[in-house]
Design a binder for these strands. Structure first.
Length: 592
RNA sequence: GGUCUCAUAGCUCAACUGGAUAGAGCAGCUGCCUUCUAAGCAGCAGGUUGCUGGUUCGACUCCAGCUGGGAUCACCA
């Protein structure tokens, strides 16, 4: 049974019966801990139709519900708040129906489809902390949509062409001496990143030298030989110069191998990859079509613009005067291509940092102007930057936190702490390593996902490595603990079941209340594109269970019905925790 | 400068979208392992929700104005 829905219906009936009016919207919220009850009806807004004081309104509805609903055992009214006590029999029934579902919280396929884009890195340097937030968010939102019954297509657009990769190529050509990942022992993306840094170093030195000779800063940046080489390579690339293309694909290949290793450890995946090099020309056609339709206009120098002043924005260039495309043009092409590739998707979710909010506002408006209805269903999942205690991450200043390094540190720390606690002596080395991986990454993912995506967040390495308190490992620990109970129950031949249970302890009621919230939280998380809601839900559920665990020693129970019930109840808690965590991309252990 | 956005305990974050005495974790202090895993539980302490007004039964939440961060406004991506 759906308790919330039932209760809402009963309240509507009560109001209709008592005050002869129908109400659609009213506030039903969880009861504050200091009062008895689980659901609270806010009565103030109802006084308009009841023509009674808030307290009297609450009493009238409360009395009606106790007499007629069959689910409300008793109630109390404090100020204008009607606190309802649901009878234990109903709670048990609620739990029973959840226990009976093998796929609790996993919706039937709805036939609806959506696309989620995330990661989308440049290919000139390794992934960093910012990418971790992006990837974990995108992956999680995709999983959340799957759980509410969508078919989800995870994709990314790889920015594999452009001046940035040419910079790495130029530096490698000048100073690389044929170095490869194999010869250097460096991961491919790290190697290419090294030459990107090398480029910057030389570029700055050359600029400085030129400026000392009296060249202006602006001119120096154009005249620096290494920059000229990079620009030349970009032109050669566009002219399909074989040698340049070969170097380009070789170096990108190194990067992809490196990225793949990083993605694998992160536990994220993609159904299809889009490459800018193959999509960057596609937007052009659409833009030119837009000119014919009159939604865009051409200036005398040949450049194409869109005027968005009517929408409160500016004018934006879509094609340069030399006819080449800009970032926006590419994104237009890519979006359209994706809807051709996956005609059934109703929209796209773009996981991209909030510094690109303006860009996406413009993009969606343009797609709308071009006549694509689905433009309305595109959403920019905009997330805040990750700051370090030392301030903003800046790649030029070497303050970036490398994704591989960070994951490694987290896992090592998890391993250290796990060994110190010494609870896993019976595990093999391999199992210990896997556990450390699970815990280290669990801590990292939870740390990055528990914060509202929209908000900028602080990443303090020493705090993120914490495994106690409001953390992923706390939840994993709770899961392992329950599993231990379930193993014990199995060895004692106690099967989980819900029969002949008449009453509940307060701690049990609290946990059932939480478990019952799961599907609502899931819907809310999807609606808000917020894994943080799932993360905090999982934490609250684990916390409630731990309180129960502490208050009630399960195997001390002499009543077999209660014992079986508590095993069932623990089992459902564990599986709900596991489901919620899997939506965050976090695995949970059998023991730890 | 225009637009957008953020500001909550010493620190990191919540607050069911306008509801009760604003909650967690970390850090600090006090208890609890001969009983299912103490990566836990119970408790103490910590707040003028940046400031000033307004809207109303009721404001961290909505509006206006300040203050202070951040982002963005390229024929860059």
């Amino acid at each position: 049974m759906n308790l919330d829905l039932t209760l809402r219906t009963e309240i509507q009936k009560a109001v209709a019966e008592l005050f002869h009016q129908t109400i659609e919207q009213f506030q039903l919220q969880p009861t504050n801990v200091e009062f008895e009850g689980s659901h609270t009806l806010v009565c103030f807004p109802l006084t308009r139709i009841s023509k009674l004081k808030p307290e009297e309104t609450g009493n009238a509805i409360g009395n009606y519900l106790v007499e007629h609903s069959g689910i409300v055992a008793r109630f109390n009214v404090v100020k204008g708040f009607l606190n309802l006590v649901i009878s234990d029999a109903v709670w048990i029934q609620v739990f029973e129906s959840i226990f009976a579902q093998t796929n609790y919280g996993i919706a039937e396929p709805t036939g609806r489809e959506v696309m989620v884009e995330y990661s989308s890195p440049n290919t000139n340097k390794p992934l960093h902390l910012g990418h971790l937030r992006n990837n974990f968010l995108g992956y999680s939102v995709a999983e959340i949509y799957k759980a509410i019954g969508y078919t989800v297509h995870k994709v990314q657009i790889i920015n594999d062409r452009g001046i940035h990769i040419c910079k790495s190529m130029a530096a490698w050509k000048l100073f690389g001496n044929g170095e490869t990942p194999e010869s250097s022992g460096l991961k491919g993306d790290k190697l290419v990143g090294k030459y990107y840094v090398e480029f910057d170093k030389n570029f700055k030195a050359q600029c400085k030298e030129l400026e000392e000779k009296g060249t202006t800063k602006e001119e120096a940046e154009k005249q620096a030989p290494i920059m000229k080489l990079a620009v030349q390579m970009l032109q050669q690339w566009e002219q399909k110069d074989l040698e340049t293309l070969k170097l380009w694909s070789t170096m990108n290949g190194w990067v992809y191998a490196g990225f793949d290793a990083t993605y694998k450890r992160m536990g994220v995946d993609f159904e299809k990859l889009y490459y800018e090099s193959t999509t960057y020309l596609l937007g052009k056609e659409e833009v030119l079509r837009g000119v014919e339709q009159g939604v865009f206009y051409k200036k005398e120098d040949g450049s194409v613009w869109v005027d968005l002043t009517a929408d409160g924005l500016d004018q934006k260039v879509l094609l340069r005067s030399d006819g080449t495309s800009v970032y926006m043009t590419q994104d237009i092409g890519t979006a359209i291509l994706r809807f051709r590739d996956f005609p059934k998707i109703e929209g796209q979710i773009y996981t991209v940092g909030n510094e690109q909010e303006y860009h996406f506002k413009v993009l969606f408006l343009i797609l709308g102007k071009l006549g694509y209805e689905w433009a309305k269903k595109c959403y920019h999942l905009s997330y805040g930057m990750v700051d370090l205690p030392t301030g903003k991450m800046k790649s030029r200043e070497g303050t970036v936190v490398d994704a591989d390094d960070l994951m490694q540190e987290m896992v090592e720390e998890a391993c250290k702490q796990t060994k110190e606690l010494g609870k896993i002596d019976e595990l093999s080395t391999e199992e210990v390593n896997d556990l450390a991986e699970m815990i280290g990454l669990g801590a990292l993912k939870f740390f990055l996902l528990k914060v509202d995506p929209k908000k900028r967040m602080m990443f303090d390495p020493s705090e993120s490595i914490q495994l106690q308190g409001h953390t992923g490992p706390f939840i994993q620990y709770t899961h392992a603990r329950i599993k231990s109970i379930l193993r014990k129950a199995e060895s004692m031949n106690i099967a989980p079941d819900v029969v002949d249970v008449k009453s509940l302890e307060p701690a049990e009621r609290e946990v059932i209340f939480k478990i019952n919230q799961y599907t609502n939280k899931l819907q809310e998380a999807a609606r808000e594109y917020s894994p943080a809601l799932i993360a905090n839900y999982a934490y609250e559920l684990a916390k409630e269970y731990n309180q129960f665990y502490q208050a009630i020693p399960i195997f001390n129970e002499s009543d077999p019905a209660k014992l079986k019930f508590r095993i069932a109840f623990s089992q459902v808690t564990a599986s709900t925790i596991a489901k919620a965590m899997s939506l965050l991309g976090i695995r949970v252990p059998e023991r730890m």
